[in-house]
Design a protein around this nucleic acid. Sequence first.
DNA 1: AATGAATGAGATTTCATTCAT
DNA 2: CATGAATGAAATCTCATTCAT
Lengths: 209, 209, 209, 209
Amino acid sequence: MPVTTGPRGRIDKRSAILVAATTVFARAGYAQAGVDEIAAEAGVAKATVYSHFGDKQNLLREALVAESDRAAEANLAVVEGLLDPGGDVRGALEDVALRLLECFTDERSWALRRLVTAEVVQFPDLADVFLGRAASRVNQALADRLLALSVAGELRIADPATAAEQFGSLLTGGMDARTRFGTRALPAAELAGIARSAVDTFLRAFAPV
Amino acid sequence: MPVTTGPRGRIDKRSAILVAATTVFARAGYAQAGVDEIAAEAGVAKATVYSHFGDKQNLLREALVAESDRAAEANLAVVEGLLDPGGDVRGALEDVALRLLECFTDERSWALRRLVTAEVVQFPDLADVFLGRAASRVNQALADRLLALSVAGELRIADPATAAEQFGSLLTGGMDARTRFGTRALPAAELAGIARSAVDTFLRAFAPV
Amino acid sequence: MPVTTGPRGRIDKRSAILVAATTVFARAGYAQAGVDEIAAEAGVAKATVYSHFGDKQNLLREALVAESDRAAEANLAVVEGLLDPGGDVRGALEDVALRLLECFTDERSWALRRLVTAEVVQFPDLADVFLGRAASRVNQALADRLLALSVAGELRIADPATAAEQFGSLLTGGMDARTRFGTRALPAAELAGIARSAVDTFLRAFAPV
Amino acid sequence: MPVTTGPRGRIDKRSAILVAATTVFARAGYAQAGVDEIAAEAGVAKATVYSHFGDKQNLLREALVAESDRAAEANLAVVEGLLDPGGDVRGALEDVALRLLECFTDERSWALRRLVTAEVVQFPDLADVFLGRAASRVNQALADRLLALSVAGELRIADPATAAEQFGSLLTGGMDARTRFGTRALPAAELAGIARSAVDTFLRAFAPV
DNA sequence: AATGAATGAGATTTCATTCAT
DNA sequence: CATGAATGAAATCTCATTCAT
């Protein structure tokens, strides 16, 4: 018997379960993950999982909400570091590009995207969770920065939203193939090369005259 | 009583099963798809499925092989249409871009990518199937064409493989978000806009002086 | 709604399953017995059987452990009744012989031996279960008694272990044929005759001069 | 296409199947043996097995008939060697005993008894096959010899049938335990010891005054 | 006569979920 | 509130048997 329980104990269990669910879903996939397994990983009884989250699907959703927020946080932190560099746009963009790429190729990010992709047909609202909480916020933030740079005369961008999307695409578009869908890690040098190459093309297209 | 049987009958059943498997896996996902369901869709007994394919995992693999080949065929046909346009590079690229986008946003292509993505952790060799049979062949073909255009002085490309990858990325990089992972169809006008926008950026970066 | 549950309830179910398994395995043989059938006989859900015993093979093992113990108990009770008879050795031996024969020809004993015999190739440890828990204990106990009678001058036995084995053999050696492997019951008179005949031969060999 | 077929080919196939069935049933048990496996072992198609033997149960029966005959032959050959030894009854009996024991502990004999024991509940007529074709014939032959020896004054036996049964019992009664139901081979020395010990007890009981 | 192919029925096992304590 | 226990429904896979060639 715990000496003190109360709201704190319950909350602790809730997040232990969420962490466990994230881990197990990432490792095994939604269908292959057993609620037993999640409960064991969290150190609680299976019924406790149900009393907190209702059912397995909802557990997935909540886990994806948390992971999407976590991923968004990391990405936004990077994008918000993209301030007016006073001259070295290329350096600033390469720096942001590389750090975004590191976020993107993180194990947990791959797992998040894989889970959304895998289950979107069964549970279409998962797309909204991921896109709304992570992808579109990051894109919007990036568009804001690009606009700022454009206003500052460092870039020449007509449509910042599209430019932001294309910046991201150039950066991450080949990653499925290169990492075999997140199954294989890339050497740091390769990451840096990809970032440089993406920024290079981006600047050819959007550098001021 | 079947009208005709013999060796042809067996082959017919095999492909009926493969078609059914593709359909059902696409509709329900690998784990949620029952072999019962596939057998019913194919109009054969469950045991026949097993006698042809051994187990469910192998059925998935064979289905993905077939779908990868089919997708590659369609994409290659488009890419191979990209000949020296004698002046109107933009028009030629936009045409190819749009048609590639149509391939890419096809229901079956989405299903293929979703299945690979979803199951790559459990069955890592599926990545090889998809990448080796489809993605990398298409990229290679596109690189070949870009090189030819570069040689012809229509483009100014140093590294055709990377340029091809970037062309594809600009084209398809935003599609997860726009189609909600293939869950939502896009109006033709939007597709055309995306193609135009991708080509525009690509040409800004790679058009000759 | 059950009138009482709690820890007692689980134990009750466990033994209900064990009893049912014993019954069904005896009736149908291991391979032909369905876990469905056992669950139905026990009045529980199939999954409950699995949650208690893990798999079918283990269920067989546990059932055989219980049956071996039960059989050993009955046999040992008989053998331990063989005290110094003060003169009438023949009578005492015939009495024990007949009662051992009754144990041996019991339906459940036949079923036990049949199951062990049938499955020993697949699950070699079953031999250990049966021999270690039943056969060898009974033989040892019988050897002890024969030694005591020998010490008391009622028998003339050099090697009690072998003598005990031979006593058992004379008694049960012909039973496969007579009962058609336990498929046919014997009249009490025949049993008594066999016991008498076995004891007769035994005493011819081991009675004191 | 075989160069010549005809009745001889069919007969060859029939016995190939029977041999294969015997092998596979012995190795795996009746229920675990697949008709596929038997057909493969025999080098024929599964349907051929059915066209020759009708169903699996009948295949078992025919295999057991053949094996029972084979076992009987071997045992009878031994027993029939038990002629009037002119003085050395013990030596003659020990010789027969050892050779019978060798028959009895043969792999194939164990397999035969195991199959009969295992399946007798499902197919009660198997007991008749085994008992009628092997066990009782051997016992009868042995009774004949014992009677002859008795007439010759070498033994003193009132009831030869019972004596024969007891001779066999003394010999084989402990073999289940010693060989763990045929799962473990015995060293030749142990076999010889058992034979000697059985004959010793037998002669104590049945040697002439 | 022999076979390759197909199948219906059933086997074991798993799992998300509920309920009484 | 947390849990151990129980379960209904379904999943994958197997196998004896038949049929058309």
